[in-house]
């Protein structure tokens, strides 16, 4: 039944508070940037769909933002469930946000075991001649985590640089990973989301 429907791929943003996850979300959603978060505009909206076409295959990325829960408490484990991809974000001008990545990585592999993981250094516009986090350090990090990281990107939400390219590349990775799986995928899935009851028309009877 679900063969014609384009499968949605849940992609989650992970990383320290303030590294730019919500800004990436906003770029993805409507390609805008605000320096001191105009929070009203996203009130209540925490995931958004966008369609990509890669080599004639269509795929829908559904990007999820944390909702700011990481500010003081931990993110709920349910945030990670059903994720096909996770973007591990740190800020290129903030070495601490880079050093704390391993904790977030651990959460991803614990709760979203099958997710493909991508590393994203954000705020590239703030990268100076003397970088706070070097390319070598990023490479070392990927090696240390046994090549769990599928790809690395640098983005700037302020200028928009690298953001589109990142999502397109992630879409490509997911299409490749799913090439064989996609046709079968939704066919044998027997769990579902509940929807409003408006569509049942006939009254029921046990009798």
């Amino acid at each position: 039944m679900a063969t014609i429907k384009v499968t949605e791929q849940k992609v989650i943003l992970c990383g320290e508070y303030g590294v730019g996850k919500s800004s990436i979300f906003r770029r993805f959603a409507n390609n805008t940037f605000v320096s001191n978060n105009d929070r009203k505009s996203t009130l209540g909206l925490d995931n958004i769909n966008k369609q990509y076409t890669i080599d004639e295959k269509t795929i829908r990325l559904q990007l999820w933002d944390t909702g700011g829960m990481e500010r003081v408490a931990s993110i709920t484990s349910s945030y990670y469930k059903f994720a096909e991809a996770a973007i591990l974000v740190f800020s290129l001008d903030n070495p601490t946000s880079f050093h704390l990545l391993s904790q977030h990585l651990l959460d991803i592999v614990t709760y979203a075991e099958n997710a493909k993981i991508f590393l994203c250094g954000n705020k590239s516009d703030l990268e100076s001649v003397d970088p706070q986090v070097t390319d070598v350090e990023m490479e070392q990090f990927c090696e240390q985590c046994h090549n769990l990281i599928s790809a690395t990107y640098k983005t700037s939400c302020k200028t928009g640089h690298g953001v589109d390219e990142m999502f397109e590349d992630i879409a490509r990775h997911l299409v490749e990973a799913n090439r064989s799986r996609m046709e079968l995928h939704d066919m044998d899935k027997d769990h579902f989301k509940i929807t409003s009851s408006d569509e049942i028309d006939e009254p029921s009877c046990l009798c």
Partner: peptide, 22 residues
């Protein structure tokens, strides 16, 4: 899926995206 513990977490997330602090 993943048990009843997903239910409180879902509502907690709702609260957070509407400004609740955890």
């Amino acid at each position: 899926m993943y048990g009843l513990g997903e239910l409180p977490q879902g509502f907690a997330r709702l609260s957070a995206i509407y400004g609740g602090t955890y």
